[in-house]
Simulated scan of single mutants.
Amino acid sequence: MSIEYYVDNRSGSCRRTTSVIKELGLDVVYKPIDLLQKENKSDSFLALNPNSMLPVIIDRKAKQQPLILTEAMAINIYLCDTYGGTHLLPKDGTKRYQILQWMSWAAEHFRQPAPIYFEENVITQLMGTDPNTTRLQQAEFMLSKHGQVLDSHLANKCYVVGEKFSLADIDLASALSQMPYSKLPVDRFKHIMRWAKDLEKNHESWKYTGDLLHTGMRQALNHTQ
């Protein structure tokens, strides 16, 4: 196995993929890309992903053409299906499709507000500009609507689907990764907060990637002050 992994540990999306890599015990070659320094805009990186987004993997399987994959959701499904991640995403059955349903819901709904809060409360600070209050109001509307749905779903649950940690938990919890910096107001949702804290406490891969993210963010913010 030879997988190259293009990553910025401060990214919530990369946290999702790094967590799966740790869960599966995969030996990958890490290729750091500094988003704040716009290394994702280089010609060499754009040749891999014209969308200029992380993460990206290149899986160089023997006797096969290298597989280049972008988008954390697609990467995580591929890694689980290819390298023994059935505990995170079953090969078939009802739970597989429930997990995929919640992953899609995370992408379409729950994770949408988080980058807006990050851009308006963190990136503007780094750039020395003012937050766009209209965008923040739109993000608040989405968070209030979709946060209530997830909070109600988690009222009597330890995990989003079934009784095990899955890709659904990873995809949804990643939206909270930047909370200390972006001021994402999720603490009003008590069931979401309890679930998120339990994930950090009970799953080493998730705690590990959280520590990486926070260390990187603190360094970046201290460097600009």
Results as ranks from 00 to 15, higher is better:
residue 1 M to D: 08
residue 4 E to D: 12
residue 5 Y to H: 06
residue 6 Y to M: 03
residue 8 D to A: 06
residue 11 S to D: 10
residue 12 G to Q: 09
residue 13 S to F: 02
residue 13 S to K: 05
residue 13 S to Y: 03
residue 15 R to E: 06
residue 25 G to K: 01
residue 27 D to F: 01
residue 29 V to R: 14
residue 29 V to C: 07
residue 30 Y to P: 04
residue 32 P to L: 11
residue 34 D to M: 09
residue 36 L to K: 11
residue 37 Q to T: 11
residue 37 Q to L: 12
residue 42 S to N: 07
residue 45 F to S: 13
residue 46 L to S: 14
residue 49 N to E: 08
residue 50 P to K: 02
residue 51 N to D: 02
residue 52 S to N: 02
residue 55 P to R: 08
residue 57 I to W: 00
residue 57 I to E: 00
residue 60 R to W: 06
residue 60 R to Y: 15
residue 61 K to Q: 14
residue 69 L to K: 03
residue 72 A to W: 04
residue 75 I to A: 06
residue 77 I to M: 10
residue 83 Y to A: 08
residue 92 D to F: 13
residue 93 G to S: 09
residue 98 Q to A: 00
residue 98 Q to I: 00
residue 99 I to M: 05
residue 100 L to Q: 13
residue 101 Q to A: 07
residue 105 W to S: 01
residue 107 A to M: 05
residue 107 A to W: 03
residue 108 E to K: 13
residue 108 E to D: 12
residue 110 F to S: 01
residue 111 R to T: 05
residue 111 R to P: 00
residue 111 R to L: 01
residue 113 P to K: 08
residue 115 P to C: 11
residue 119 E to A: 12
residue 123 I to F: 13
residue 125 Q to L: 07
residue 125 Q to A: 15
residue 127 M to H: 12
residue 132 N to S: 06
residue 135 R to L: 15
residue 140 E to S: 09
residue 142 M to A: 14
residue 143 L to H: 05
residue 145 K to A: 05
residue 146 H to L: 06
residue 149 V to I: 02
residue 149 V to K: 04
residue 150 L to G: 05
residue 156 N to I: 13
residue 158 C to D: 10
residue 160 V to R: 00
residue 161 V to N: 03
residue 163 E to K: 08
residue 166 S to I: 01
residue 167 L to T: 04
residue 167 L to S: 01
residue 169 D to P: 04
residue 169 D to Y: 03
residue 170 I to S: 04
residue 171 D to L: 08
residue 171 D to K: 08
residue 174 S to C: 14
residue 178 Q to T: 12
residue 180 P to Q: 06
residue 182 S to D: 15
residue 186 V to D: 02
residue 187 D to T: 15
residue 189 F to V: 02
residue 190 K to W: 09
residue 192 I to D: 05
residue 194 R to D: 12
residue 195 W to H: 03
residue 195 W to I: 05
residue 196 A to S: 14
residue 198 D to R: 06
residue 203 H to M: 09
residue 205 S to L: 02
residue 206 W to C: 12
residue 206 W to A: 09
residue 210 G to Q: 03
residue 211 D to N: 03
residue 211 D to G: 00
residue 214 H to Y: 08
residue 216 G to Y: 11
residue 216 G to N: 10
residue 217 M to E: 10
residue 219 Q to F: 14
residue 221 L to P: 08
residue 225 Q to C: 07
